[in-house]
Amino acid sequence: MTCWESALMPVYSSLTHALAGALVDVLWFIGGSEDEQMDPDDAVKVLEGVSHLVSKLSSDQRSELIDLLGTMAEAESDPARRGFLEGFPEGFGLLDDVV
């Protein structure tokens, strides 16, 4: 691993954290893409697919992801991305049916 790779690759405490980070990165990119970068209809399909996926998570899995997103938001230095992370649970339906 080069110094460049180690400087850009965060160390995650778990596979779940790494995968959540990757999901957030992809959705952040899609949300910030211009129409010339990504077809808007395709973007909507991806976002709806993620919402459907998280709707299938168990209550415990949703709670774990919500907690993880909160931890990620607290550590985020970019205010826009922090806002995205804070709004993720509501925006993607994680709060539906969580007890």
Rank of each mutant, 00 (worst) to 15 (best):
F84S: 04
F92Q: 03
D96R: 15
P79A: 14
E48C: 05
L19C: 09
E64L: 14
V26W: 11
G32Y: 03
W28M: 06
F88A: 09
K56G: 03
R81T: 01
S59M: 02
V44P: 00
R62A: 03
S14Y: 06
D78S: 11
L65A: 03
E76L: 08
V46D: 09
M72S: 07
G87L: 04
W28H: 08
L69R: 03
L95D: 06
S6P: 01
V44C: 08
I30Y: 03
L27D: 05
S63G: 10
P10H: 02
F92H: 06
G49Q: 12
L85R: 05
W4D: 15
V26L: 08
L19M: 10
L15K: 03
L15G: 01
M9N: 15
P89F: 07
A73R: 00
E5H: 04
W28K: 10
S77K: 09
T2L: 09
A18Q: 11
G87T: 09
R82F: 00
D96S: 14
A43M: 11
G83R: 13
V98I: 11
L57Q: 06
F92D: 07
C3G: 08
L27T: 02
C3R: 15
E76C: 10
M38K: 00
E86K: 14
T16L: 02
T2K: 07
M38V: 04
L15F: 02
G21V: 09
